[in-house]
Amino acid sequence: MVEIKPLHYFVSAYEEGSITAAASRCFISQPSITHAIKSLEDRLGVILFERSKQGIKPTKEGQTLYKLATDLLLQNQQLEAAFTPDKKVELHLYIQPDINIERYCNIIDTIQNTSPFIDLSIVETVDQAQLAIIDEERLSSQFQFKVLNQERYQLVVRKDHPLATENVVTLESFKDLSFIERPYCTNRKAFERLMNEKKISITYKGKSIHDLQIQGLVKLGLGVAVIPESYIQKDDDLKYMAIALDAPITRTIVLAYRKLPSVLMTAMEETKWAYCRKK
């Protein structure tokens, strides 16, 4: 008889295309995933994955097992739910660190209120998640998603900065400015490419670890910064300016999901999700 747990690990490896990602998703060590797959291969007398430096690729037998295993795991979940209707369903949520989660508070509330048996917990990586609020650029193909918001970037300076009299700036305005670096920015390379095309060099005076800190550093007079619009706040000491570009650089924030309980999957498909616009 094939046990349920190895099938769960096999399905995770199949969907992630990586032993490492599957281990992260299942909160176990890589050798445990490898051992589970090997035990299935020995039990069934087949090879389930072709292994290479690029990861793992399912064989024909692996594809067949995946279809059967997902059906079996779903039936097992339904069986448990039928006899333990009050059992909590734990959902793992990933929130990208540089996203202003306060803008999406109503979404979190809606998810939690969909069912009293949903227990939402935060995970460290998107590989571990069933739900994610994330930049679309960082999302893997295993997820479906709903677009929440598209935002541009603005330059933030102190109110006494020479540029503070402007409402709109160009990249040429960046010359000779000292910046606080935002190393986690998904569009950093796009900005750097434009700067290189215009032969504008950037001087960095330090790095931030999140966008609230970066504004504090600007307020202290340690430099200027480029931040997403969602982090703009009412502050008498700071000035925010739009950046004039021929093709605006934006990021798209999405609500991503996979492998959800039926009640929440229905909500995902039917609800028009919106973000909080209050500043």
Rank of each mutant, 00 (worst) to 15 (best):
S173I: 01
I107R: 00
P116K: 03
E197A: 04
F145V: 01
L91W: 13
L148G: 02
N106R: 14
D119Q: 06
L120H: 02
T114G: 07
Q96Y: 04
T84K: 12
V168D: 05
P116E: 09
P97E: 12
F117M: 13
C105T: 15
N187K: 13
V157E: 04
F179P: 04
H161N: 01
F83A: 07
N149V: 08
I133K: 05
A164H: 04
H161G: 05
V169D: 10
F145W: 14
V156F: 06
E172H: 13
K198Q: 09
T165W: 00
L194Y: 05
A190Q: 10
V126G: 00
C185A: 09
I118T: 10
L163M: 10
A190D: 10
A129H: 04
E166K: 15
R103L: 07
D176Y: 03
F174P: 04
R182S: 11
Q96G: 03
E197P: 00
D176H: 05
I122C: 08
Q154I: 07
N100M: 03
L155H: 01
I134Y: 08
V89Y: 08
C105Y: 13
I111K: 12
E197I: 03
C105V: 14
N113K: 14
N187Y: 03
E197D: 05
L120K: 11
P162S: 00
S173K: 07
K175L: 00
E192D: 13
K87Q: 13
S201D: 10
C185E: 08
S141D: 15
R182G: 01
R182A: 11
E172I: 04
D160W: 07
D86A: 12
A82K: 09
L177R: 07
K159A: 07
Q142P: 07
D160H: 07
D127E: 15
Y104C: 12
L163T: 07
L120I: 15
P183W: 02
N167E: 12
Y204C: 02
E181P: 02
K199G: 05
E151W: 05
S140A: 08
F83M: 02
C185R: 01
F83Q: 12
D98E: 11
E197Q: 09
T165R: 14
A164V: 09
K146F: 02
L91A: 06
M195F: 11
I133F: 11
N113M: 14
D119R: 12
Q154K: 14
T110R: 06
V126R: 09
I180C: 01
Q130K: 04
Y153D: 10
I95E: 02
T165K: 13
I200A: 01
F191W: 01
S121L: 10
D98W: 10
Q154C: 15
T110Y: 08
S140K: 14
L171V: 08
I200M: 00
K87M: 02
I202E: 04
V126S: 08
F179R: 06
V168A: 08
I202K: 07
P116Y: 13
